[in-house]
Amino acid sequence: MFARILKSGTFHDVVGYVTRQFHDPKEYTADTWRIIGSENIFVSDYAKMVQSFEAIHGFMPGKENPAGHISISFDNADAPRLTDEFMAQLAKEYMDGMGIKNTQYLVVRHLETGHPHFHIVYNRVDMLGKAVDERNNFRRSDRVVKAIKDKYGLTYSPLKKKYEDKIPVFKERISQAIYGCKSWDEFSRRLACAGLEVKFHDDHNTGIRIGVKFTDGDITVNGSKIDRAFTYRRLNNLFEFNRKHGQQQSDYAPTRPKVTVEYTPTQKSSLVEDVIEATVGAIGNLFTLGPGFDPEEQAFQNAIKKEEAKRKRKSRRI
């Protein structure tokens, strides 16, 4: 069992896809799909289904792309067990685990492919006119699928197991590569050294870069599936922050050379004369500027010596 949370859209598009309205009718005939579950939906025909969804969406008309869409596939080894009734039950348990409750949904089984699977279409606006909670839905989906597989003894696909085993490896390598990184080019070079390739996804309408994924051999994983911190937007913001932070440090860096103070003693008649001479600014060769000179520290030392000189002069008058 493997769940894919697909891009949400309009009910016209998503319901039309799962019910094969936009496919070649000669190839996708009425016996290549069937509705195996639904709630709060008129299922007599495509138009009625869309109208049913749109009626509830009217409670929150500002909700964009209100049609949620999830595909759930199974290993062929489980095919003998996957009756329509059992699939409908699994769909309901999956939606309950995901928090998709008190809303409209449609479960459609596709029969023309080589592996058993069904599609869930649900209204992202519930029956009370509120938005369905979809926070952390990718992580939640992984937990729900695992619980269902364990409950019913469904097959763990070898490819899925390989995919899941790779996630911690990807996360560790990416976490190491982003430290102090200031650009995508730098990030890509670092990951290439770790054996990972960075690929991007652009919006097909605007051409704007919106996603990032990582590839290691035959395994490719979206950044958001590895960790929510590894989405394109968050990584891009991190690199921009590092660039600005690095620039600020260079802007505030002192431009004067760092010098040290080296004390060169001279022959003086008395200790008091040494102190006085230091107080008035190191006359003659008393001080030499070296590579670590700090004006603030020098001013502090001069102030101390000045106070000491005053005490000495006062004691001499007494």
Score class of each variant (00 low, 15 high):
M1V: 09
T10R: 07
F11S: 02
G16F: 03
G16I: 10
V18Q: 05
V18W: 00
K26L: 10
T32M: 06
W33D: 11
R34D: 04
S38C: 11
E39W: 02
I41H: 08
F42K: 15
F42C: 14
K48M: 11
F53T: 04
I56G: 00
F59M: 13
K63P: 00
N65I: 00
G68W: 03
H69I: 00
I72L: 14
F74S: 00
D78W: 05
D78E: 10
M87Y: 03
A91I: 04
A91G: 14
E93V: 08
G97N: 08
T103A: 08
Y105T: 05
L111Q: 14
L111V: 01
H117A: 06
V125S: 06
A131K: 15
V132P: 05
R135P: 00
R140M: 09
D142S: 14
T155C: 11
S157D: 14
P158I: 05
L159A: 07
Y163N: 09
E164I: 10
K166W: 07
P168Y: 04
A177W: 06
K182E: 15
K182R: 15
A194E: 15
E197A: 15
K199F: 14
G207K: 12
I210Y: 08
I219W: 03
I219G: 01
I219N: 02
N222L: 03
A229G: 07
T231V: 02
E240M: 10
K244R: 15
D251A: 10
A253T: 08
P257T: 06
T260Q: 14
Y263V: 06
Y263M: 07
T264L: 13
T264N: 10
L271E: 01
E273F: 02
I276N: 04
A278I: 11
T279Y: 01
N285G: 07
E296N: 12
Q298E: 07
Q301R: 13
K306T: 12
E307Q: 13
A309D: 08
A309C: 11
K310M: 10
R317D: 13
R317W: 06
I318K: 12
